[in-house]
């Protein structure tokens, strides 16, 4: 096979395409077409039992003039922002510890693996796992009561915005750790020694050398975390006990009512919002070079 004349005459570009074609086919069939379909259906109209092709701005008009939409988008931004802040602080600290304070490569790998394993287990189970901890008679309340901090169990631990953000941080911090750790391991240690020789303190080295050089990792991690939270519908539903809403839940509620056109219109607006946010971040980082 290797010495067939074809492989010699075939241009590099054609070979490249041949090798990339399965990826292109899958993404074409299961990403481009479906998103195109959502775009088309967002102009359709729904009757009680079916959806009908049409070209109507009705779905968008309803969506953009409804105060519920604005409230829900605001809540979605709030979750994304809070989760971003906490995952960034925790993720940066953990990555910094692994990259600069763990000396042997073997322990680095082992500890990094320790952080990765939960990511390979079920998110839904990980959400359920908070019930015995945060519930009305859960560990947190029992501990606080026995310590005398409170006399009544706190009601806002489970099924609240607090629980939603906690679960988001729990599930998504790894997406921050991995790219930041990856960027940090590529920092030339001589730069840090040079800074130390020039009399920089530990904090100055951290702030003026390590943080700027870790920026690409921070950007990539931020893209992951923000988009995962913006598009979520299940964490908010489960952890808020169906009391809070975000855009994802708006979409999934419409789907539940078979209101596909209106679900599609909301999806298009969400997609444009997410892509705009990422477009801004991508102006500052070249992902392909940073991997």
């Amino acid at each position: 096979m290797s010495s067939s004349p074809v492989s010699h005459t075939m241009s590099e570009s054609a070979k490249g395409w041949l090798l990339a074609s399965p990826l292109a086919l899958v993404l074409g069939a299961f990403l481009v077409l479906p998103i195109g379909m959502i775009f088309v259906v967002s102009f359709w109209q729904a009757t009680e039992f079916s959806i009908e092709p049409a070209f109507s701005w009705e779905n968008y008009e309803f969506l953009l003039t409804s105060p519920v939409t604005w409230k829900v988008f605001l809540a979605t931004f709030k979750y994304a922002f809070l989760t971003w802040v906490f995952t960034l602080l925790i993720g940066f600290t953990v990555a910094y510890y692994l990259a600069f304070h763990i000396r042997s490569a073997a322990s680095q790998t082992a500890l990094f693996l320790l952080c990765t394993i939960p990511f390979l287990t079920s998110n839904i189970i990980r959400m359920i796992s908070w019930i015995p901890f945060l519930g009305r008679n859960g560990i947190a309340n029992q501990a606080l009561i026995s310590l005398g901090v409170i006399d009544q169990p706190l009601e806002w631990l489970l099924y609240s915005d607090f629980a939603v953000v906690l679960a988001f941080v729990h599930i998504n911090t790894l997406f921050m750790i991995t790219p930041i750790f990856n960027t940090m391991t590529r920092i030339d240690h001589r730069l840090i020694e040079a800074a130390r020789d020039q009399g920089a303190s530990g904090w100055q080295i951290l702030w003026s050398v390590i943080v700027p050089l870790s920026k690409p990792g921070i950007m990539i991690g931020s893209i992951f975390v923000v988009t995962l939270v913006m598009g979520d519908f299940i964490t908010v539903r489960f952890m808020s006990g169906s009391q809070s809403a975000n855009v994802g839940r708006l979409i999934s509620n419409d789907i539940g009512l078979l209101q596909y056109p209106s679900a599609s219109a909301t999806s298009v607006v969400l997609l444009i919002t997410v892509l705009m946010m990422i477009g801004i971040v991508l102006r500052f980082v070249n992902i392909r070079k940073e991997l």
């Binding site: 993404l27 598009g231 994802g248 596909y260 599609s264 892509l275 992902i287």
Partner: peptide
């Protein structure tokens, strides 16, 4: 283009893929 399509695939909310594929 293919690279950015792959990145888009990561960042597009899962429920959109679910909805779109279901509709198709």
């Amino acid at each position: 283009v293919l690279f950015y399509l792959a990145i888009a695939s990561l960042v597009i909310p899962s429920i959109l893929v679910s909805l779109g594929v279901g509709l198709i």
